[in-house]
Amino acid sequence: MAVTFKKETVAEFETIAARYPVRRAALLPALWLAQKEFGWISTDAMVAVSKLVGCSPAQVLEVAEFYTMYQKKKPGKYHLQVCQTIACLLNGSEEIKKVIEQKLHLKPGETTPDGQFSYQPVECLAACHKAPCMQVNDDYHENLTPESTEKLIDDLRKK
């Protein structure tokens, strides 16, 4: 189903595009706007982005695929991204992953049937001194323990 951007979004995009000497440079910002407006980057969203930026849908696809933060699949209401790189590994990220996988019955890349939670192990989130850590949507949660992770999930569920 074709999707279209809101008028305000188009206006916001034009302001952003004017910051660059070439319009194509506004492709990453356009994908961010699309993700904000539609929740994720569907094929239809990519077509809308290509029209907005003035490049081919294939070019949008190529870029959207390259960057992990663009959701090519509808994520859960809460997207749990657990850091699995060295500093977090040294401080117990394996257990944090286990808690999420067992409590929510999720494998990496999956979403719960009720659409509440999706889960993705990620690489260094640049909060290594507060390891282990994870990002839930835009928010950082640090110095996690198995207990605090359980509690966090319970709290999010109640929201």
Binding site: R24, A25, L27, L28, W32, V53, C55, F66, M69
Partner: peptide
Amino acid sequence: HRGAGAYICGEETGLLESLEGKKG
């Protein structure tokens, strides 16, 4: 300019490609 999750975009020319709206 907001990146979108790709370690290689920290490499300076990967970063410039990304700034130009391409794969990093």
